[in-house]
Deep mutational scan, measured.
Amino acid sequence: MKVMIRKTATGHSAYVAKKDLEELIVEMENPALWGGKVTLANGWQLELPAMAADTPLPITVEARKL
């Protein structure tokens, strides 16, 4: 699914347009965010693609819901 990742004042957030859902990312498998699992505030887990740590945000990526 397409997910937009952006930086907020409190960390990172994910927006899933198909579900009209925006949630804070509360847990990251990798400190650089990319190439691992993230957990959203509502409990969803997404697998993000591997990208460079300095990838500019906001960005829309293809993520997989676990």
Rank of each mutant, 00 (worst) to 15 (best):
residue 27 E to Q: 12
residue 16 V to P: 00
residue 23 E to D: 06
residue 18 K to E: 15
residue 31 P to E: 13
residue 26 V to W: 04
residue 32 A to M: 13
residue 47 E to Q: 13
residue 34 W to E: 01
residue 60 T to N: 06
residue 11 G to K: 01
residue 64 R to K: 13
residue 62 E to N: 13
residue 30 N to W: 08
residue 11 G to H: 05
residue 58 P to F: 07
residue 15 Y to H: 08
residue 45 Q to T: 13
residue 53 A to C: 08
residue 3 V to W: 01
residue 64 R to Y: 12
residue 25 I to S: 02
residue 66 L to P: 05
residue 7 K to A: 10
residue 43 G to P: 00
residue 18 K to G: 15
residue 64 R to V: 13
residue 37 K to R: 13
residue 32 A to T: 14
residue 15 Y to K: 09
residue 16 V to D: 09
residue 62 E to V: 14
residue 7 K to P: 06
residue 66 L to W: 10
residue 40 L to N: 01
residue 61 V to W: 01
residue 41 A to I: 04
residue 26 V to T: 10
residue 3 V to D: 00
residue 53 A to P: 13
residue 36 G to P: 01
residue 39 T to N: 04
residue 42 N to P: 00
residue 30 N to L: 09
residue 43 G to N: 03
residue 16 V to A: 05
residue 14 A to I: 15
residue 41 A to H: 06
residue 13 S to Y: 15
residue 45 Q to M: 13
residue 39 T to G: 02
residue 23 E to Y: 15
residue 59 I to P: 01
residue 27 E to D: 12
residue 39 T to H: 05
residue 35 G to A: 05
residue 63 A to C: 11
residue 56 P to C: 07
residue 9 A to L: 12
residue 42 N to I: 06
residue 13 S to C: 14
residue 21 L to P: 01
residue 22 E to M: 09
residue 66 L to H: 07
residue 16 V to H: 05
residue 59 I to G: 00
residue 9 A to G: 12
residue 7 K to T: 06
residue 37 K to V: 14
residue 46 L to F: 13
residue 30 N to P: 02
residue 59 I to W: 07
residue 35 G to N: 06
residue 5 I to H: 00
residue 20 D to Y: 10
residue 48 L to I: 06
residue 3 V to G: 00
residue 19 K to T: 14
residue 6 R to C: 11
residue 54 D to Y: 06
residue 7 K to M: 10
residue 49 P to S: 05
residue 22 E to Q: 08
residue 44 W to I: 07
residue 64 R to H: 10
residue 50 A to I: 12
residue 12 H to K: 04
residue 33 L to S: 03
residue 51 M to Y: 06
residue 64 R to F: 12
residue 29 E to S: 09
residue 7 K to L: 10
residue 16 V to S: 06
residue 53 A to F: 10
residue 63 A to S: 06
residue 60 T to H: 06
residue 58 P to S: 02
residue 2 K to S: 12
residue 4 M to S: 10
residue 4 M to N: 08
residue 32 A to E: 14
residue 26 V to C: 09
residue 51 M to C: 05
residue 7 K to F: 07
